[in-house]
Design a protein around this nucleic acid. Structure first.
Lengths: 193, 193
DNA sequence: GAAAAAATGAACATAATGTTCACTTCATCA
DNA sequence: TGATGAAGTGAACATTATGTTCATTTTTTC
């Protein structure tokens, strides 16, 4: 197992444990135990506990991002691609129990304002994916000539709000309906007549 | 609210918090917070953290015991009473989520050997209830003239084993079937022909 | 089998948390 | 109403738990 794979293994174990107990209540030894190693050894891979937490969460967020990117890359029709992007992104957390729990314990992970965003780089990349789909729609003459940057930011904010409503505040069913409604409206708003 | 009621309130809050985090990971301040008081104040009611834990668990066990006792006291037929005793006792934990969680985190609560039983007094009272039903069956000429003390101990051990299997090891469905089977056999074994 | 890399576990520093207690607030009753 | 005891507070303190380091050992690589 090379260093890359070891790091992945460590981050995933750490995320599981942080999900179980929350940041404060997990000891770095709990994570070492989960990995079958000693805590001293963990410090060859991360700077300190906080660093381990941030790397583990980052890893989780990147998995999320990669899964969405993969699932839309081969879609020809840009409208379908836009819908898939939104839906896959929105529903992902229903499957990733660890990341979901960590998020519930620590909602500050989410960028309320992009100023105080601990994971700014990852969010920027996610927004880039959204932006690229919007740009493509315009380039292909399917979407109206909107201001891509501002619309990206707006849609991303709405998307984050939905995720918080659904997974952090658990306003499940009715929120999902709202999401589909909103998605329909946005798509119609985007399309050229 | 008198002292008695306050103690009850404290024990129930403590049990909820211990259930959430386990003994080691709960701070006495967590419990104080749950009660809306300061931790200093808690020490007017308990000796230390371990004492609080034991009192909270004891309170939970006594609730269990009282519920079973109440539910069988008005049953005329001793066979029905015996069946109800076993069934109510066995199924109780499916409803008391806090006590169940605490038990899962700390199976030593249960008397593996009565030598090292932290809650010996409570278990003794539970056994007394069982013993009294057996004695009544014999007195009324419905049960065979078995050795009540030894049988009580045996049945109680089996009962505890079923509870551990069902709630601690979560071997749910098939264990419940086994329980009903076992109960049937035991009752038949008790009855005079 | 030498050199490098990875892992260990004990030692250490420090932060977290259990516990105490002088003091404040609240309730009771003359 | 104001004296008295009970209940509660919060800061201080002692101790434990836990994060972090590092000399040493074990494993891997070549």
């Amino acid at each position: 197992m090379n260093r890359e794979e070891k790091l992945t293994r460590i981050y995933e174990a750490a995320l599981r444990v942080f999900a179980r107990y929350g940041f404060r209540r997990t000891r770095v030894e709990d994570i070492a135990d989960e990995l079958g190693m000693t805590k001293g050894n963990l410090y060859l891979y991360v700077k300190d506990k906080r660093d381990l937490y941030e790397k583990a969460v980052s890893h989780g967020l990147l998995q999320w991002q990669a899964m969405v990117a993969r699932s839309i890359e081969k879609i020809d029709d840009v409208c379908e691609q836009f819908l898939a992007l939104c839906r896959k992104g929105y529903t992902y957390l229903s499957r990733d129990v660890s990341l979901r729990s960590v998020l519930i314990n620590d909602p500050s992970i989410f960028p309320l304002s992009s100023r105080e965003d601990q994971f700014a780089e990852i969010n920027r990349a996610s927004m880039d994916l959204l932006r690229s789909v919007l740009a493509r729609g315009i380039r292909e003459g399917r979407f109206r000539e909107v201001d891509v940057d501002h619309l990206t930011e707006l849609l991303y904010s709405i998307y984050v709000m939905f995720i918080i409503k659904t997974y952090v505040k658990s306003e499940g069913k009715s929120t999902q309906k709202m999401f589909e409604q909103g998605l329909d409206v946005v798509l119609q708003g985007l399309l050229k007549k």
